[in-house]
Amino acid sequence: MTLALAVAVGVLYGTGTYLLLQRTLTRVVIGLAMMGHGANLLLLLAGGSPGLPPLIGDATRERGALADPLPQAMALTAIVITFGTVAFLLALAYRSWALTDDDEVEDDVEDRRIARAPVVPDVVIEQEEP
């Protein structure tokens, strides 16, 4: 891990969050993809120090010099799944645009209704006659 890599991860997460907080669905998808890149990088970096590719060849390659293969396998899986998610979200954006000529994320109407609903107490305590 070097300072530069940490900065790269941080910037990817930061810009990803910035885009994720938008209302345009395309931007949200791009933000998610950026965060995905950051996450994959972080996964690999967190596994340990860099090394030679984990390929077992002749005896001259020492085991200790090889990189840890487990984080690599995990990151590989993560890359593929990120792609699946992005493709799905893009299809959503396309559908939203096809149906409404827009790819805005609207406010949840039901949530809005709940937020505006008056408070009705449902506990009635019998009051004594004075």
Partner: peptide, 12 residues
Amino acid sequence: ATAVGVFVAGFA
């Protein structure tokens, strides 16, 4: 966004 970025970098 900046807060998240700084936090993740520090975490890394």
